[in-house]
Amino acid sequence: MSLTDYLLNAVLVLLVVRQIRGSRLDLVNLVLPLAITVGVGFSYLHSIPTAGNDLVLIGGLAALGVALGVGAAATTRLNLGKDGVPFARAGVTAAALWVVGIGLRMAFAFASTHGMGPSIGRFSVQHSITPQAWVAALVLMALGEVVSRMLVLRIRGHRLTSNARRAQLAQAA
């Protein structure tokens, strides 16, 4: 892993701290994680290889990322702020799921450059996986985690806001 990779992962871990502190589900909190993720995607994802079992690996890790993101969003507490904007605060489970995703990617990257590279290479040859598939799979895992978390939180936030509006209208009637 390069210094840039470590710094990028540190930024993602800092997002966990921000989630634990809590934040409004406003435009800034939608754009920041998506901008980071899109930037990573453009930097690392140049193609999606389809040889051998590449798509199996890519699909599996992307699905794992989506599952981690949905789990993190589902275990995040949402409250309606006084201004009517939903406020999200990640609990221990949500933060742990986020860290698991980052940790798995970092552990793989570290292992591949610190002694496990030949083993990963042999595994890849035995299972018809190209080196480019590992890159695509890990990047799509991260994308799946971020996008699914954001999407589920936005849906939950919209429902919370809609239910509060209905309750206000019912009280006014």
Rank of each mutant, 00 (worst) to 15 (best):
G69P: 02
V70P: 01
G71Q: 03
G71R: 08
G71S: 04
A72V: 01
A73E: 01
T75C: 09
T75H: 11
T75R: 06
R77M: 07
L78S: 07
L78I: 09
L78H: 06
L80W: 09
L80Q: 06
G81K: 03
K82S: 10
K82L: 07
G84L: 11
P86H: 03
F87A: 06
A88K: 04
A88R: 03
A88H: 05
A88T: 00
R89H: 02
R89Q: 12
A90R: 05
G91L: 03
G91W: 10
V92F: 13
A94D: 01
A96H: 07
L97C: 04
L97G: 01
W98L: 07
V99F: 12
V99A: 14
V100R: 04
G101K: 03
L104F: 11
R105T: 13
R105S: 14
M106E: 08
F108E: 02
A109P: 03
A109R: 08
A109Y: 09
F110T: 13
S112D: 07
T113M: 14
G115C: 05
M116G: 06
G117K: 09
S119Y: 09
S119D: 12
I120A: 12
G121A: 15
G121S: 15
R122I: 10
R122H: 08
F123H: 07
S124Q: 11
Q126N: 12
Q126S: 14
Q126D: 15
H127V: 13
H127Y: 09
S128L: 15
S128V: 12
S128E: 15
I129V: 13
I129G: 13
I129C: 14
I129P: 10
T130N: 05
P131H: 01
P131K: 07
Q132A: 15
A133Q: 09
W134I: 12
W134H: 02
A136Y: 00
A137T: 04
A137D: 02
L138G: 04
L138E: 00
V139L: 08
L140W: 06
L140N: 08
M141K: 00
L143D: 11
L143E: 06
E145F: 04
E145M: 15
E145P: 03
S148E: 02
V152L: 08
V152G: 00
L153E: 11
L153I: 07
I155A: 14
I155P: 10
G157W: 05
H158N: 08
R159M: 12
L160N: 09
L160G: 10
